[in-house]
Amino acid sequence: MLLKRHRSSDENKTVKRHRRSSEALLLPLHVVELILERLPVKSLVRFKSVSNKWKSTIESQYFQDQWFLRRKQSRGPDVLCVAIGDDYYNNINQGYYEAAPRDTVLLGSSVVSKVRLPITNMMLCHGSCDGLLCSYCSFTPCVVINPATRWQQSFPLSNYQQLCIDMVDKNQYDFPMPKLGFGKDKFRGTYKPVWLYNSSKFGLENVTTCEVFDFSKNAWRYVVPASPYKINDVSFPVHLDGSLYWLTLCEETKVLSFDLHTETFQVICKAPFPRSSERFRSRNYIMCILDNRLCVSEKKGTTQVIWSLDSSGGNKTWKKLCSIDYAKTLFGVKPILPLAPIEFLDEKKLLLQDSGSLVMHDLHTKSYDSLLEPEPIEYPVSYFQSLFSVSSN
């Protein structure tokens, strides 16, 4: 008598997975794409293993562009509180750390959460560019990382970083420490890290020196001519619509732009405040991007004013976006540095960062609420998830 063999539970699961995969492959490709466009990043990363066709679809530039556009149109930006560095600073195990429920706040369609990146560079470029973050240091290779897919790529030291290393080797520590800029050439779709630094402390004759990294050649190159004005290297450069922006360090503060396509510098307008030629005083000014607009924040005594650049009609004028009264905030004291504006969330609520906490300012009620308590070394960034990597552009 023949005994019928029963499948094990693992075998049954394998058969069911194979059946579902086979059924999925029978769907027309355009239907598959419409379904995949509505899925989160984690699901898409897993579904690349369904078939070679699904993998090539999800990794295609067209699909990634469409998925990213759909996500931006369907909801507001998220905010990632990015912790970087080693265990000495973060007190958690090496590797990715994703937010626990207590470290997540929902604001309308936006999510404020925490993430830790497994990198040792201690600085992060302002904001994100297409869901990519760029971490850097004056002495170690920079890293571009996608926190959603966990893709990352480092790139070699620039000439500026080598100059810093040479100065330290000579026990000379009085050299510029600018912030790295990171943005995208919107015409070619290529990402570009940019160092722009004041040259005099390195004994160079030019006013500033500019270096751009070319991922296709895996090399840095100089851009000549660089900015004719010294830059405020205390403030972070910001990226908007294919250009990077700096504040200048001169008698009359100007807003300087660097077109990432033509790689040319241009002064676009004066700043809405008189001057910031003194380096210490320049700490009172923060440039940022809010609601896809170039903004400058100015700390004056017990208040902080945020200005927005209006370029409608071809004329560039500054408009007062809002004012923050320190006496009415949760702190009730004047902070040493201005609060850093992060992003508008849930319509008219502005998220700000103080050195010790995240604060939500309601522009209608003028009220303030404390949100997540950040780690000692943590950078809140406005952020949309994406599937992008440098190699996909």
Rank of each mutant, 00 (worst) to 15 (best):
residue 14 T to L: 13
residue 16 K to V: 07
residue 20 R to Q: 09
residue 22 S to W: 10
residue 22 S to I: 09
residue 23 E to A: 03
residue 25 L to S: 07
residue 26 L to P: 00
residue 27 L to E: 09
residue 35 I to F: 09
residue 42 K to L: 01
residue 46 R to T: 11
residue 47 F to G: 00
residue 49 S to M: 07
residue 50 V to I: 12
residue 57 T to P: 00
residue 58 I to H: 01
residue 59 E to P: 00
residue 62 Y to M: 05
residue 63 F to V: 00
residue 69 L to S: 15
residue 70 R to A: 05
residue 79 V to D: 00
residue 82 V to C: 08
residue 83 A to G: 10
residue 99 A to T: 05
residue 103 D to K: 09
residue 105 V to Q: 13
residue 115 V to K: 14
residue 135 S to G: 10
residue 136 Y to K: 00
residue 137 C to Y: 05
residue 149 T to F: 09
residue 150 R to A: 15
residue 151 W to I: 07
residue 153 Q to N: 15
residue 153 Q to K: 15
residue 153 Q to A: 13
residue 157 L to Q: 10
residue 161 Q to V: 12
residue 164 C to T: 14
residue 167 M to I: 05
residue 171 N to T: 11
residue 173 Y to T: 07
residue 178 P to L: 01
residue 181 G to P: 01
residue 181 G to R: 04
residue 187 F to I: 12
residue 192 K to G: 03
residue 193 P to N: 07
residue 194 V to E: 03
residue 195 W to H: 07
residue 196 L to H: 05
residue 199 S to F: 02
residue 202 F to D: 09
residue 210 C to H: 02
residue 210 C to I: 03
residue 214 D to A: 06
residue 218 N to A: 13
residue 225 P to E: 08
residue 225 P to H: 04
residue 226 A to H: 03
residue 226 A to Y: 00
residue 229 Y to H: 13
residue 233 D to K: 03
residue 240 L to N: 06
residue 244 L to S: 06
residue 246 W to K: 01
residue 246 W to C: 03
residue 247 L to P: 00
residue 250 C to K: 04
residue 250 C to E: 04
residue 251 E to R: 03
residue 251 E to N: 12
residue 253 T to G: 01
residue 256 L to T: 03
residue 265 F to M: 03
residue 271 A to D: 02
residue 275 R to E: 13
residue 276 S to V: 07
residue 279 R to C: 13
residue 279 R to K: 14
residue 281 R to D: 15
residue 284 N to C: 13
residue 293 R to S: 14
residue 294 L to Y: 12
residue 296 V to G: 08
residue 297 S to D: 11
residue 299 K to T: 12
residue 301 G to A: 14
residue 307 W to T: 01
residue 307 W to P: 04
residue 309 L to Q: 06
residue 311 S to F: 06
residue 313 G to P: 05
residue 313 G to D: 04
residue 317 T to Q: 10
residue 323 S to V: 09
residue 325 D to W: 05
residue 328 K to P: 04
residue 332 G to A: 15
residue 335 P to T: 08
residue 335 P to V: 07
residue 335 P to S: 13
residue 336 I to C: 12
residue 336 I to E: 14
residue 341 P to F: 12
residue 342 I to P: 05
residue 343 E to H: 09
residue 349 K to L: 08
residue 351 L to I: 04
residue 357 S to W: 06
residue 358 L to T: 11
residue 365 T to H: 08
residue 365 T to G: 02
residue 377 I to G: 00
residue 377 I to F: 08
residue 379 Y to I: 06
residue 380 P to V: 00
residue 389 S to W: 02
